[in-house]
Design a protein around this nucleic acid. Structure first.
Lengths: 235, 235
DNA sequence: CTCGGTTGCGTATGGCGTACGCAAGTAGCG
DNA sequence: CGCTACTTGCGTACGCCATACGCAACCGAG
């Protein structure tokens, strides 16, 4: 009857770290992994490089982490930290606070997007955020299923925006200009009329602060759409 | 003045395939790569396995594809195919058609989501979809920048939903039930009250057709939000 | 002091992407 | 026909990766 529970999850929810070792510990390894992935990207995170950072041998890590997948699970659990307290001034402000804080997490740790893509969250770190997000809708009349779908809609938007924005932030300053120039070079009005018009209108030559404005723009659309439902249900 | 253009892009936009070889050709390699990634996932796509499928030696592929990254670029260009014709019955129906077709692409080739994550599209295959999506908004009074932001908002939602849905579709039938059971097992009302309530309400024990319904639900929210803006601008 | 358990790590294996250079085939041209 | 220039296929080799296994050093309890 009881589903057998994977070791990784049991550790994640229960066992605290044993700081016994002569220097290595799960917490230290996970923290170093997060720092490495933040700085150089998840592709640069290898067990060997991580061990080097920690001043130990590669195989020593396996005493605290059963394999690389488990390390990544620990990292995605720890990196987001605690979700923010939400304002009590209504679901919209609460949901917006949640979305902006989550965006901050993804901008700080873009690799989370890759690691958690298509994997339903089961660690306490991720689920705490889901719980907090659901609580933003406490003052609505929506069903639990509706609240969950609404939250997923916001989540999809935040993840999608972060996937683009976090990369742009770390790119060279000229890359965005290059992108606009390449679009302009390849896209012809005959084959792609709408795109050519958008390109000619300067849509692909973004400037400072445009990332922020574009996030706010999309989030406003999404929240407006939710508002239509919430208000109709109450009216 | 002229930005130097990466070889991969030049090939993508210009040079047709030279079918000269004794069996190998760029098109055949790309098609086999797509088939392999569709069947076994992108992680199972190695140059060696691909060569085996094609009955050639690993190094032979490099005559037609300069490295694995370029192969992936060719694959993401080719896999989506042509975007659908959009109905002329208004922006909402057009955008919905576009979104559903794109979702179909991601469900058929989930690896595209991983490969294109955080990389702005520059190949004709992807850009044709962006162009078609923008054209869905031709009958609105929005600016080009607004149309682009609107399209990105829809795109984020579609990608986010597909990232979860495409995986669930290929999962074992019992996995979804397992997920609900694991949530119920770990989540306590004291620590995560909203999540516990949602779990108790059966939100995490999905049934047949729920994926479709959930996509429609979220898409309706997003389109409703866009409608608020389009209508206000016109009124 | 002994002993069971824990921790660190050296060695080794099999997979990966791919640089390099040779050989076999093909096309152009006399 | 033969000679040459080029293209295509691929065998070998290298360095990086995750990680299985077993030994040695250490630690706390008796």
């Amino acid at each position: 009857m009881t589903t057998e529970i994977p070791r990784t999850l049991r550790v994640l929810w229960g066992e605290p770290d044993r700081p016994g070792g002569r220097g290595l510990s799960r917490d230290r390894i996970v923290a170093a992994g997060i720092a490495l992935a933040d700085a150089d990207g998840i592709a640069a995170l290898s067990m060997a490089r991580l061990a080097e950072r920690l001043g130990s041998a590669p195989m020593s890590l396996y005493r605290h982490v059963s394999n690389k997948d488990e390390l990544l699970a620990f990292m995605t659990d720890a990196a987001p930290g605690s979700p923010p307290e939400l304002p009590a001034s209504g679901w919209r402000a609460a949901l917006e606070t949640w979305a902006r804080a989550l965006r901050g997490v993804y901008y700080a740790h873009p690799w989370i997007l890759q690691v958690t893509a298509g994997r339903p969250p089961l660690d306490p770190g991720q689920l705490a955020w889901v719980d907090r997000g659901l609580s933003a809708l406490d003052d609505t009349a929506l069903s639990w299923a509706e609240r969950f779908e609404v939250l997923m809609t916001v989540l999809h938007f935040v993840r999608g925006e972060a996937q683009i924005g976090a990369v742009l932030l770390r790119a060279e300053p000229g890359d965005q200009a290059d992108y606009g120039r390449l679009i302009a070079h390849f896209v012809t009005p005959e084959r792609m009329p709408a795109l050519a018009a958008a390109s000619a209108a300067g849509v692909f030559t973004a400037g400072d602060g445009d990332l922020e404005r574009s996030f706010t723009f999309g989030l406003t659309r999404v929240l407006d759409g939710i508002d239509v439902m919430v208000t109709r249900g109450e009216g």
